[in-house]
Amino acid sequence: MARARIDDGAGRAAVRAALAEGASASRDIRAQAVRYTLQLLAEQAEGNTLEVRVPPFGATQCIEGPRHTRGTPPNVVEMDVATWLGLATGTLAFADGVASGAIHASGARADLTGHVPVLPLN
């Protein structure tokens, strides 16, 4: 059964709160912000080539290309909550996150360049 879609108003509010409060934001707010922005990524970059993980709150598959169906995905990008929210909102560039070690990317197609931000801050 598919997870229910997070409402845009609630999702945006969670992202704003998570960014404003940082690490002191409640677990529920951080979880909703991550899940909402991962939802946007999956909608904007449909596919199953890359798995994006933001433990402990969520993961999604995205980007067109060869489909992954079993076992460990060959293309994985993983990061913490603050790093993901920076990517998702455009305050962090993918290349900068990889260079700093905040983003762990493995696989030939493990690149979110051009797919983030999904919710640019204006």
Rank of each mutant, 00 (worst) to 15 (best):
A93W: 03
A102D: 12
R70V: 10
H104M: 08
T60A: 14
G11H: 10
Y36S: 01
A95L: 02
V98K: 04
D80G: 15
A110M: 12
P66D: 12
E51H: 04
L87C: 06
V54N: 13
R5P: 00
A93R: 15
I6A: 02
E51P: 03
A20R: 14
E78Y: 04
R67I: 15
G71V: 06
I6H: 08
A99D: 13
E21W: 03
P55N: 11
N75Q: 04
V98T: 03
R12A: 10
L87V: 04
V54W: 14
T60D: 01
A14R: 14
G58Y: 13
L92Y: 00
A99W: 03
R109E: 15
L50K: 10
P56F: 06
V15L: 09
L40H: 04
L85S: 10
Q61A: 08
F57Y: 15
A42M: 08
P117L: 04
E43C: 02
A45F: 08
V98A: 08
R30W: 01
D28M: 05
S26Y: 07
A23I: 01
L112P: 07
A4R: 15
G90P: 04
A2K: 10
L41W: 07
N75L: 06
G71C: 12
S26F: 00
S24P: 00
L41C: 11
A33Y: 02
P66Y: 05
G107E: 11
A10C: 03
R12W: 00
G47Q: 08
A45M: 11
P66R: 11
R12T: 06
Y36C: 00
L112V: 13
A20W: 00
A102V: 02
L19C: 05
A4T: 14
G107S: 12
P120Y: 09
G22P: 01
N75Y: 05
H115G: 03
T91A: 07
A18R: 12
R16D: 14
A110G: 12
N122C: 04
H68A: 12
L19N: 06
I63A: 05
M1N: 07
P66N: 09
R30M: 00
A18M: 06
P120H: 08
D28V: 10
S26M: 03
R3H: 11
V52A: 11
H115L: 08
F94E: 07
I6R: 07
A2T: 09
T89Q: 08
E43Q: 15
G22C: 02
I29Y: 02
A25Q: 03
R53H: 15
